[in-house]
């Protein structure tokens, strides 16, 4: 997994609430192999018409945001389907962090396991970041995972929370599977207790 330490990049706003993972990656792309170009399919049906013509006012098509590496989302960002492919699409496009007031639970879990950082900030803070992005498209903001802060282009600092171990995995670029496997004996002991009917 790719490390996440600090990120200084443009933030592209997706202002709507309840953006679902069917929008982020439509179902007809779900059969694509893990290493296929999911980024090319990110928001496919919002980003382009049926013939592939770009929708001019879709945020990813606007100057300043084409290469944004941070996304700003509305409430309940990436709700719906558990498809991890939605994370692969964002990551494949180059997005490394999403800042929103809340996330679909499954998406937020999938994200951190792929080096994509979901940052929960209060709705007012996200609204301020979006307003700033609209006013200055392409202006960079900074996310510092070790310090657990988002610094707006105007210098405002927003602290955020994250589980300690998740933070460790992202900072080091390791996943939790090796850690769990190192506890195989605890799992075996649990299974023995279960077999004896003590659970």
């Amino acid at each position: 997994m790719e490390r996440f330490t600090t990120l200084h990049a443009a933030a592209v706003p997706f202002a709507r609430d309840n953006i679902d993972t069917d929008q982020i990656l439509p179902a007809r792309f779900l059969h694509m192999a893990r290493d296929a170009d999911h980024g090319a399919c990110l928001f496919r049906d919002l980003r382009a018409g049926p013939d592939g013509t770009e929708v001019a006012d879709f945020p990813l098509n606007r100057p300043g945001w084409r290469d944004a590496r941070i996304a700003l989302g509305g409430r309940n960002f990436a709700c719906g389907s558990s498809r991890e492919n939605a994370v692969w699409a964002l990551h494949g496009h180059g997005i490394r962090a999403v800042i929103a007031p809340s996330f679909g639970d499954i998406f937020a879990i999938n994200a951190v396991k792929n080096g994509l950082l979901p940052v929960v900030l209060p709705a007012e803070a996200v609204a301020a970041l979006m307003a700033e992005a609209e006013a200055h498209p392409g202006a960079a903001i900074t996310i510092d995972l070790a310090a657990q802060t988002v610094t707006a282009a105007d210098g405002t600092v927003h602290p955020f929370d994250i589980d300690g171990f998740t933070r460790h995995c992202l900072l080091e670029g390791v996943d939790e599977l090796a850690f769990t496997l190192s506890h195989a004996e605890d799992i075996a002991a649990f299974e023995r207790r279960m077999d004896r009917g003590n659970i």
């Binding site: 389907s81 991890e84 879990i109 996943d175 599977l177 496997l181």
Partner: peptide
């Protein structure tokens, strides 16, 4: 995500992503 269905019978059931599936395949946890 519709794994929530099974909770109707008093199970705790939830949907997971592919990396989590890999984790469950390897560790059953």
């Amino acid at each position: 995500s519709h794994t929530s269905t099974h909770g109707a019978m008093g199970a705790l059931a939830f949907g997971i992503g592919m990396t989590e599936v890999t984790h469950v395949l390897a560790t059953q946890t």
